[in-house]
Design a protein around this nucleic acid. Structure first.
Lengths: 225, 225
DNA sequence: TCTATAGTTCGGCTATGATCGAACCATGTC
DNA sequence: GACATGGTTCGATCATAGCCGAACTATAGA
């Protein structure tokens, strides 16, 4: 009965509180240095170094050396999606880390998930784009339809040409328990939202805060109800 | 930066090899007794008992006492979905447990995921039903449309009335890296497939083996290409 | 070249948690 | 009631792995 992939190694990797905190911090999508991650995890640099070596060895993070800094980021969308799934389980049993302060509702409403928009707004975007036929679930996965491409072009959303990563991808949302849009398109839309000034990131958190007019403009652009 | 659910506890729970094996065994959807699970994990009854107590305390499994047996099963679709996500990560880095024997391709082709169909066939079903408009992603999640309800009725698929669980749900597939259909409908369709004699489970594994005529009949029934 | 900072390596301490032997409770069978 | 089997509890053992102090390497800047 032991067919299938070896999940214990990966889960053990995520299971250490220090490493889990680091991964949670990296869910912001920013690349962080080893010392910054040490601060997040509440451990010394030596300990953090050991943890990061293990995460790297387990292919959960990738590292990019820049001068005397080493920047760490999540290894990809799949890692982010798995972390979201784990958060969903933890949230389901009431294991929220911070007691329901003002942060929690805001996190549920709109937040960054690795590099795209999550939370209620992310789910709303995903549903709306499917409902209007901008996205379609075809036999090759999630597709951007003809009308979807027109929308992207009309709004002037810049898709980077790095075509290795899939254009569209779904990611399961821990707060709404529904899918939202990831992939290159998901990233581009979040980027676009910031550039338009519709929303800003709250410094030091994963919260995305829409302005009143920005929220309306966002909904209008994607025809969300 | 420590907002959000506490994932470390859950991941630690899954991270022990013994518990991971138990959970993997429970992905077959069958309810297993404590001694059976001890055998799966390769530990003694005492150890298994301790593990199962922790899994139960962490709400990953539920237990049902029947006479002097205690049957364990996964706590729900979310748990299964999370395990699939972890398997996806593990598979991505080539961490397959069994060396690519004959089992592995069959597992990828069609298998049981908790209580519904997964693997290439599961993904194919999901995509086809969306493509033909039997399913739709609406604002309340995945919906069975009018024509979908007609299809279900015409085929004579029995949906149990236990309406607590959602009718349709997506579950991310570790082998195909795509979504497949879970929820009450997903369970009913798998059940129906077995009842029609289109496929059988390979004893002691999660493999679902379609007969030649059964595979064709399955594709015809749901208009899969 | 000297200094400050980023990060790693090494060694030893410690604690958590997995493991099992043995005894114990509970349910069903004869 | 005696007995077998499923399962839990307790206690002791043992290994793994997290942790940090201290020493070390590497890059940047003056």
């Amino acid at each position: 009965m032991k067919e299938g992939p070896n999940i214990a190694r990966i889960a053990t990797l995520i299971g250490d509180p220090g490493r889990a905190n680091m991964l949670a911090a990296l869910m912001s999508g920013k690349a962080l240095t080893a010392t910054e991650l040490a601060g997040e995890a509440g451990v010394t640099k030596q300990t953090a170094s050991a943890h990061l070596a293990k995460l790297k060895d387990g292919d959960l993070v990738v590292v990019e050396a820049q001068g005397r800094h080493r920047y760490f980021r999540l290894a990809g969308e799949e890692v982010a999606a798995t972390l979201e799934a784990l958060m969903g389980l933890a949230a389901a049993k009431g294991q929220l880390r911070t007691r329901t302060g003002p942060k929690d509702p805001e996190l549920r409403h709109a937040r960054v998930c690795y590099n795209h928009l999550a939370g209620e707004q992310g789910v709303r975007l995903y549903d709306g784009m499917l409902g209007h036929g901008y996205l379609r679930l075809g036999s090759n996965g999630l597709d951007l339809t003809q009308s979807g491409q027109e929308l992207v072009g009309r709004l002037g959303i810049a898709l980077d040409g790095n075509s290795r990563a899939p254009l569209c991808r779904e990611c399961l949302d821990w707060s709404a328990r529904r899918s939202h849009l990831a992939g290159r398109l998901g990233r581009a839309i979040l980027q676009f939202t910031f550039e338009q000034g519709w929303a800003k990131r709250v410094e030091g958190t994963r919260i995305v805060r829409f302005t009143a007019t920005g929220g309306a403009a966002f909904a209008r652009a994607f025809k969300l109800t």
